[in-house]
Design a protein around this nucleic acid. Structure first.
Lengths: 250, 250
DNA sequence: TCCTTCACCGTTGCATACAAGATGAAATGC
DNA sequence: GCATTTCATCTTGTATGCAACGGTGAAGGA
């Protein structure tokens, strides 16, 4: 596998984990090829990889898009995360002190990001907690699974989460780490299950999956803005990633 | 994604799950292209997909091969399976009677295959139990994960498992289903954990990963056969999959 | 005899060209 | 004015051709 193909793949994945790529965002092969200075072949390879990981999807002869999970798929993703992450905690018989320290450090960084205004960094950190946990208590295979599921739920939060849950999530994370430090893995698992439930409960799955996103993107509107700014023609600039909120986590 | 590419992908995956493709088997792009009557492009797409799923690997400019997990990777795979599958059972609050019935039916077919001599079918059924379970208690995402992990452990068993464990595995499966029927999910999870431990304990991870496989394949020898059969030139026939034992399961 | 070097062969890596389909707009008929 | 049809354009799907590289065996030298 070529290094540049990995770059494209991890670039897109990282952007999704950071909430910088909204569900439904179009990923033209040509655009990406220009952006990364490679041919369509390698772009396609990266997109195919991401498709098997459930991050993007292709509509035949129409284009590639970041996935827009349905309400049902959203529930499935949270269910899968509960299974894997509680299983992870329950299967762990012990945890190294260094691992606890690493998690506490992460919590600190996470907390700091709550006051900052870098929403992407915050989103990324909240997801990274889980990925980090999988890395510390599991192994590479588990980490891969958790990473893909986290990417998916990040997208789901962007679609269905009405308001920011970053503070609550960070607290939940702290509770989980506290339980781990006590060596109470059953409690940690229960807290994890509750944490994922919290986030899922905060979703409005009855809402149609972001029907305005396409329009917003087309007009380069910030979703918080009520009225459209001065009308300007749609610029064909590369990487049009309008930031939005919709902070997720688990 | 083209239908034929899916065919190639699932064909290889099915062959792995059935133990008909040994770890280390070479998968030439050209050979597969001829076999499936498609161009290398589609073959490559399928192989790239399988690579992201951890089933095959590519050695640059040398070729594609079915993965040969190392001893460390083997442990990781079993660890991952324990996490996911115990999590699956513990997260299940209930199980539909039809699901129990389906599992019992599977057990019956599984048992019958023990007396038969279709080793591939047996291997496939033993793995399918877990995939089926994930499908019944989890959802599509979980099933995908379990399927990929099962494929990996199937390969691991072919590499490191000295003797057949099919009977034991089938018994373990029955015990798990019995616990499920009682509604005792904790017991089912414990049995699953023990089951996976059994299989892992039956491995000889100190053994070099099947150093003779390459020779055997070259000479078309059955691993059970002590002496080589009448010397015949290596035939370039399609799908040269010499069956071997090495029954796995979890 | 053994080691080194070189050239050939086979394989994947990658780019490109062309085909096929979907979409939207313009033109046309009613 | 509205619906329908046709056409232009843009996108991905697929095949193919060539380049680059690893491996292997032969040839040559010590």
């Amino acid at each position: 596998m070529s290094p540049q193909a990995v770059d494209i793949e991890s670039f897109i994945l990282t952007a999704v984990l950071g909430g910088r790529l909204r569900p439904g965002t179009r990923l033209g092969e040509m655009q990406l090829a220009e952006l990364f200075r490679v041919s369509r072949t390698k772009v396609r390879e990266a997109l195919v990889r991401l498709e098997t990981r459930g991050i993007v999807t292709v509509s035949p002869r129409r284009g590639w898009y970041v996935v827009e999970p349905s309400a049902e798929e959203a529930q499935e993703a949270f269910h899968a995360r509960k299974i894997v992450e509680t299983g992870l905690l329950l299967a762990a018989g012990r945890i190294a002190p260094e691992a606890i320290a690493a998690l506490k450090h992460h919590l600190e960084v996470e907390r700091r990001s709550l006051d900052g205004d870098d929403i992407s960094a915050r989103t990324c950190l909240l997801g990274d907690f889980h990925i980090h946990l999988a890395d510390l208590l599991g192994n590479r295979l588990v980490t891969e699974v958790v990473r893909d599921l986290t990417a998916r739920t990040t997208l789901i939060s962007m679609l269905y989460q009405p308001k920011d849950k970053a503070e609550e999530s960070s607290h939940d994370h702290a509770d989980i780490v506290a339980a781990l430090e006590r060596g109470d893995f059953a409690a940690a698992a229960a807290l994890m299950s509750a944490h994922i439930d919290h986030v899922e409960a905060g979703l409005d799955l009855s809402a149609r999956p972001d029907p305005l996103a396409g329009l917003r993107d087309a007009f380069f509107l910030d979703p918080d803005a009520a009225a459209p700014p001065d009308p300007q023609p749609a610029s064909p600039a590369p990487s049009p990633y309008p930031d939005q909120h919709g902070d997720n986590d688990p």
